[in-house]
Amino acid sequence: MSWESILPNVFAGDAPRVAERPMDSDAFAGFYERSARPLWAYLARVSGDQALADDLMQESYVRYLSAAGPTPALDGGEVAARRYLFRIATNLLRDHWRRPKQASIEEIPEEFFAAASNSAQSDSRAILGPALAQLRPRDRQILWLAHAEGYSHREIAEITGLASPSIRLLLFRARRKIARLLKLKQITQRSDA
């Protein structure tokens, strides 16, 4: 006996919506397999915290599945569903940054220190990581969405909730800044070598 049968009128107001929801657990598993890694990469690289990325990714999917309104998976296909998922993750990141910091040294996972000390092992992390860390969170988000995920200005605007013309300007500035930092880093590495 399911809980919906025990409480039959709970979704009386949105019964057709629930009935139309096509995503069952198998469909979700497939969608998750295809979208979880890019989403985790986005959260981990933009936040710079793998443990936080784990938490926010799980919360993003739970919110996606328990969304009150019709999910874009219903009418816009998987591309729209992914975009919707990135929007949830972006909002969660924003909420996290707005929250006052209360973490003590005991609460920081050991991997954080390991990752910091082994940062030179990976080229992209060694070059891109410090450059991203010097940017504002919003710039990191926009750059990742544009260059790692390949989203258009309109799509980035939809995900971040900013106006499309603003995205063009913000992306232009962020791109100039990170390109300058990356070039500087490359020059430093060459001179060290």
Partner: peptide, 18 residues
């Protein structure tokens, strides 16, 4: 740089069961 970082981070993801 971003594509490389994306591929690297994607492989490092430790996913929960759907």
């Amino acid at each position: 740089a971003f594509q490389h970082a994306r591929a690297e981070a994607s492989s490092a993801a430790n996913l929960t069961s759907p």
